[in-house]
């Protein structure tokens, strides 16, 4: 319980660092850290398949995508950097009180919620659920992936044509 609570606090702090980070590269690193902590939580809850996906795709691939986008956009000037640093605290000043208020609201709503969840130990294989129970969903996933590939090809071809390359 204590370890899980520490992990959850660490994840919330990493998420907070991600949204308040001054530079995008730091935000990307914080996002990867959030994904890594979520991976550890998944492993501890007994979900290794999803954890491996989370680690490889979210902490790896998405970080690479973000870094690629950052490298393709222009560098900040010193004036932009200083103004952004000044504005950051002004922009995010309501976030800590909002989070504290939300945490308190959740604490006081704990009893009225009266949640009683089933506590069953029905262990089934994730692969069998994936390939047998949700076979049709896999078809949808493949279609979404193909749509994504088609979108990326179209978008990057448009950017190339505009540059005249």
């Amino acid at each position: 319980m204590i370890t899980m609570a520490i992990l959850l606090v660490a994840m919330a702090l990493a998420a907070l660092w991600t949204v308040t980070a001054n530079l995008y590269l730091r935000a990307t690193i914080a996002l990867a850290l959030t994904s890594v902590i979520l991976t550890v939580i998944m492993f501890r809850l007994g979900a290794p398949t999803a954890a491996v996906f989370e680690l490889s795709v979210c902490a790896g691939l998405i970080s690479v995508i973000f870094i690629s986008v950052i490298s393709l956009t222009h560098r900040l000037t010193l004036q932009e950097f200083l103004s952004r640093r000044q504005n950051r605290f002004a922009r995010f000043r309501y976030l800590p009180p909002l989070l504290i208020a939300a945490a308190l609201a959740m604490y006081f709503a704990r009893q009225p919620l009266g949640v009683s969840l089933p506590w069953r130990e029905t262990v089934t294989d994730a692969r069998s659920v994936m390939w047998d129970l949700r076979r049709f969903d896999l078809f949808g996933q493949v279609m979404v992936l193909l749509a994504g590939v088609f979108g990326v090809v179209t978008l990057f071809r448009g950017a190339k044509n505009r540059d005249g390359r």
């Binding site: 998944m42 809850l45 007994g46 979900a47 398949t49 999803a50 996906f53 989370e54 795709v57 979210c58 691939l61 998405i62 262990v123 089934t124 294989d125 994730a126 069998s128 659920v129 994936m130 129970l133 949700r134 969903d137 996933q141 979404v144 992936l145 749509a147 994504g148 979108g151």
Partner: peptide, 17 residues
């Protein structure tokens, strides 16, 4: 948990796209 893992994998795939 198995069903949740399958749903999370779907979420991750759509997230990447």
């Amino acid at each position: 948990l198995a069903l949740a893992q399958a749903i999370v994998i779907t979420v991750i795939v759509i997230e990447v796209v």
